[in-house]
Structure formats: C-alpha cells, structure tokens
C-alpha cells in the first residue's frame, strides 16, 4: 500500500476565525510572541497501485472533494 498525506490549508487572504481564536488562546496561556495562527486539515490515506496512479488519483481527490479550491490550497506528500 502507498501511504500519502494530504494537507489542506486556507488560502492567503481568507479569514480564519478558528485560527484567530487559537491565536488568542495561546496568548492567554502565556505563550508570548505568537504571530498569526492558521488552522488546516490533514488527511492520511492508504492507496493501492503504483505511485504514478496514486499521485494522479490524489490530485483528483483533492480537486473533487478533499479541498474546496475556492478557499483552500492543498499539498500532497507520498511516502
């Protein structure tokens, strides 16, 4: 099985209220000097077949479902 990790993050300029709240919470825990915090998602996937097919499939999965490309970017890492 091929193991892959897809990371989905918000595009620059898209407001991230959850990241902002986390940023505030870190500050209130006493972590000073924390700049901007942005929240994202990680998907760990196992795929059958060869690496080239997995790469193509993962890209299609991201474009079709895993990311909303209106607001999100994604990166794919294959083990």
């Amino acid at each position: 099985m091929i193991k892959a990790r897809v990371t989905v993050t918000l595009k620059n300029g898209v407001l991230d209220p959850q990241g902002k709240a986390i940023e505030g919470a870190l500050g209130s825990l006493g972590f000073s000097g924390v700049g901007q915090v942005r929240q994202g998602k990680v998907f760990d996937l196992e795929l059958e077949g060869d690496k080239a097919k997995a790469e193509a499939d993962l890209k299609a999965m991201c474009d079709k479902l895993l990311a909303n490309t209106v607001i999100e970017n994604y990166t794919i890492a294959i083990d």
């Binding site: 407001l15 209220p17 959850q18 909303n68 209106v70 607001i71």
Partner: peptide
Amino acid sequence: LVEAQLLPGALMRNSSL
C-alpha cells in the same frame, strides 16, 4: 449549492465561532 459550484464563493465558519 456553493460546494456544487452552482453558485460562486464559499460559506465559512461564523466570525464569532
């Protein structure tokens, strides 16, 4: 409808959370 791209844009978490 926005996820299906029948309408443009996206609907995100309320700013108040």
